[in-house]
Design a protein around this nucleic acid. Structure first.
Lengths: 213, 213
DNA sequence: TAGATTGTTAATCGATTAACAATC
DNA sequence: TAGATTGTTAATCGATTAACAATC
């Protein structure tokens, strides 16, 4: 097991979800060749990636699917559940609360917060929506380190500052705005505009290529 | 203006949203130094990126903010609005319909589709929710080429096939599952698990580093 | 002018891929 | 054994960065 590059890290969730998507009556072993073909990657790259987090495969046989899933989950830290709070119980916040895929990766949203008194006190997808002043107390009491920002752009920096004051050390920002955080806080932008731009650029190339040939 | 690498393309939306976030009383010109510092990038990289899509800046002065915004928007095709349909009017679909950032990048969601008869016929965020059989007709009539999948994983492939039959050529998939599409269809996965994994990996490294020092 | 800034060329770095050896 | 597969070493490729020239 070697140190893992950022590119390799990003591919790990893909391997994991592909392996988990295999039917129950699949063979016990799978080859890097098959994985590469299914995910559109290079065989050697797959082997290097898997070698970095697992004990490796058997020549002629392949990789044991179950232990590979375990190894990737262990590497990604899917076992040790991280608690998170979400700020903003609008449509995006609600969608995130209802998203079932998070628990697969060890994320558990324990509470939501919102300034809107019409929402606070209610339950949404099994999680209580608290008023903002409760943030401090709740994060400290439950030892929560991850905060998810799902508020409009103009409120995001304020929410970000409050989260950091409440002991949050990693922030997942869904608001379309840049945030300033101190060096010791991890910030991850979920920027849908990037994906969208890549998609529409590809589309326009496809359309223009079609026109010319 | 040179051909643009994939990495450069991915940074474009960041430049654009940063430039747009500047206050109205900002100076008319901005230097690559400032942009690089704000976005955590290298100066030279910023200059190369901007040179690829714009007419360039002026030595000693910098880049004209307004024309830079125009150039990036033009490059990304933000002007020519792409119509899109969305399938799945659950909480994720609703969140996407209400998301205001899409129009900035030229995406306009014109209609939603769902199998649930309790939802169809209703309006959501100004868009009508149609029953699935209307998909064919509507896509053809409006010349829609982009489809957004916001249904549960198990229905995603079926929806994907229907979209392609209806003339959709680019698919933005929010379901946590791999989809099979023909060569001539562009597929973009919005995989939140990737971001989440990167975030929690960084967090665990931060916490472990803290324990050792 | 002097200095801040752009833009280019060359070097470095990292990731991917190709070729081949090792293994069961 | 023969052949499919893993794993490693070296080459290639692409992107980033450093050094420097050009410009206003």
């Amino acid at each position: 097991m070697n140190p893992v590059s950022r590119q390799t890290l990003k591919r790990m969730p893909h391997y994991l979800s592909y392996l988990k998507s295999l039917p129950n009556d699949r063979p016990a072993y799978i080859s890097a060749t098959v994985i590469a073909a299914e995910l559109g990657l290079n065989q050697v790259q797959v082997r290097k990636d898997l070698a970095a987090v697992s004990g490796g495969g058997k020549p002629k046989v392949g990789y044991a699917v179950l232990s590979l899933i375990e190894d990737i989950e262990k590497y990604l830290g899917c076992g040790d559940t991280n608690s998170a709070v979400i700020v903003g119980a609008g449509s995006l916040g609600m969608a995130l609360m209802s998203y079932e895929g998070f628990s697969d990766y060890g994320l558990n949203i324990v509470a939501a917060f919102d300034t809107n008194p019409q929402l606070t006190g209610k339950d949404a997808h099994g999680k209580t929506i608290f008023p903002m002043p409760k943030l401090d107390d709740l994060c400290e009491r439950l030892g929560v380190h991850i905060g998810i920002i799902a508020v409009p752009a103009q409120s995001a920096q304020g929410v970000c500052d409050k989260l950091i004051k409440s002991g949050i050390r990693a922030i997942w920002n869904f608001a379309p705005v840049y945030l300033n955080v101190p060096q010791n806080v991890i910030l991850q932008h979920e920027n849908m505009a990037v994906s969208l731009s890549v998609l529409s650029k590809h589309l326009s190339e496809l359309i223009h290529a079609g026109e010319n040939h």
